[in-house]
């Protein structure tokens, strides 16, 4: 914050002010004090209606036996305590085993997507650090996947991944890499398809953020290193990466959370019934809730998912902060 003004002053306006204003100045003191809250009210109401209240309701739902019989009149749904959680977290029940498997898939998917997106984003950002003709065009091109509506890009990918008419198999057979055309949207390969499509959508964000991060590294650092005879790989290791550390700390977390929570790519790629290999949590909970209408269990699973994410985020922030202090 660069301002030194006492913040309240903005509300009181200057000392030599004629008392003719309509709002602020002429208002009695309590109203003036409430003014920020009044102006904030619409945003607060929207947040309450769509985020806060549903979250509380969701936690409440996870404690009820809420199924197709009680859904339309939830006040009469029986309270079952932690029963839903017991079912969802029991790795020996089919429900719990499915959830655990889905968690494993989601973690593997997120780690892969984050790692690939970060590597691609960093490569592009570093390669474009150097000024040359056409740099602006490439920067713009690399942003397009991020700007495209997610459904159109994933639909395009699902066309490319069609077994008989798609580009992917045409290229692979053309290069002689495969002999019988594999399926990409069912079976084992569906996981790889989902990763590639997500990386395609996600890496431009890593690129954007890392480009902004690189621009804040002073050029003199590189010049000094060049004078000292540091080669390009040493400059990357000793200047670029350490200087990007704070940016990376946030970027990796944001990428991870977005990927972990992503519903769009698998849903659009596979439709209602995802192959078992690509059954990520969002889709898993969605399917089990809207197929069986067991909303109590679905809510319990969502709450567990949130708790997992909160725990993971807390550990991550603790680790990155500790490392930052040590450095």
């Amino acid at each position: 914050m660069s301002t030194l003004t006492v913040p309240e002053r903005a509300g009181d306006a200057g000392p030599a002010r004629p008392g003719t204003g309509r709002a602020g100045p002429g208002l009695p003191r309590p109203t003036r004090k409430a003014l920020p809250y009044l102006i904030l009210l619409p945003a607060l109401l929207a947040e309450l209606a769509i985020h806060i209240v549903p979250m509380a309701v969701g936690v409440g739902m996870s404690l009820l036996r809420l199924n197709q019989f009680t859904l339309r009149n939830w006040t009469r749904a029986p309270f079952v305590g932690l029963d839903n959680f017991a079912v969802a977290a029991d790795p020996y029940s089919p429900v719990g085993a499915g959830l655990l498997r889905s968690l494993g898939i989601t973690v593997a998917f997120s780690v892969l997507v984050v790692a690939c997106s970060w590597v691609l984003g960093l490569s592009a950002a570093v390669a474009l650090q150097h000024r040359f003709r056409g740099r602006g065009v490439l920067r713009t091109l690399f942003l397009v996947p991020f700007a495209l509506p997610v459904f159109t890009s994933v639909i395009t990918w699902s066309f490319m991944l069609q077994r008989d008419t798609g580009l992917v198999n045409a290229v692979l057979t053309g290069l002689g890499l495969v002999h019988s055309r594999p399926f990409w949207l069912v079976g084992t390969n569906s996981f790889a398809s989902m990763v590639v499509v997500s990386v395609w959508r996600m890496w431009p964000f890593a690129f954007l953020t890392l480009t902004a991060g690189l621009q804040s590294i002073p050029g003199e650092l590189y010049e000094a290193a060049a004078v000292d005879g540091a080669g390009p790989s040493r400059r990357l290791r000793d200047i670029t990466l350490p200087m990007l550390r704070p940016v990376n700390a946030v970027l990796l977390l944001v990428l991870f959370l977005w990927t972990f929570n992503d519903f769009n790519v698998p849903y659009i790629l596979f439709g209602q019934s995802a192959p078992a290999e690509a059954d990520v949590l969002s889709l898993h909970i969605y399917q089990s809730s809207f197929v069986t209408w067991n909303f109590g269990l679905g809510s319990a699973m969502s709450v567990l998912m949130l708790l997992f994410l909160l725990g993971l985020t807390a550990i991550y922030l603790w680790l990155t902060n500790r490392r930052r202090r040590d450095v």
Partner: peptide, 18 residues
């Protein structure tokens, strides 16, 4: 809230609307 899973809000919102 922007970092929370969407599915967390979906089920309760659906129920609230119903």
């Amino acid at each position: 809230t922007q970092m929370f899973p969407g599915i967390l809000f979906l089920l309760p919102l659906f129920l609230i609307f119903v």
